[in-house]
């Protein structure tokens, strides 16, 4: 059974490229345009990994992670936060909210695949 990954990013092209890469590696992918949109995708379906950007309109990534962690079905879901070098404080906030993994932006698809593979195999 393929593992399902939720990608949350306000950039359609990021969602697209990451989706292509992850699907290519054998994962199932669903996407969210921002925190608010992503929360609606958390409707109880099994999700094995969440990848979320930090800076997004409507609901930022850190709020989204904190909300997701409140839902019993996603309490233990690993979360990769997309941080930037200059956002050490954001990274700490994200970790406190429950996102213990991260990928530093800008990244290439291979880097994302490698981070995902450490946490979930397809």
């Amino acid at each position: 059974m393929a593992k399902t990954i939720l990608i949350v990013d306000d950039s359609a092209s990021v969602r697209q490229v990451v989706s292509i890469a992850l699907k290519g590696a054998g994962y199932e992918v669903i996407t969210g345009n921002d925190g608010k949109d992503a929360l609606t995708k958390l409707n109880g379906q099994r999700i094995h990994l969440i990848i979320s950007d930090v800076n997004m309109p409507n609901m930022d990534g850190i709020t989204f992670v904190a909300e997701a962690k409140k839902l019993p079905a996603y309490k233990f879901t690993p979360i990769i936060m997309l941080t930037t070098e200059s956002q050490e404080d954001k990274k700490r906030q994200a970790q406190a909210a429950g996102a213990k993994a991260w990928v530093t932006k800008p990244f290439q698809p291979e880097q994302m695949l490698s981070a995902v593979a450490k946490l979930v195999q397809p």
Binding site: D9, D10, S11, S13, V14, V17, V18, D53, N55, M56, P57, L82, T84, K105, P106, F107, Q108, P109
Partner: peptide, 14 residues
């Protein structure tokens, strides 16, 4: 800020 940030992130991806 977000616009610039997103631009950078997506550019990196490509």
């Amino acid at each position: 800020f977000r616009a610039a940030h997103t631009l950078k992130g997506s550019s990196g991806l490509f």
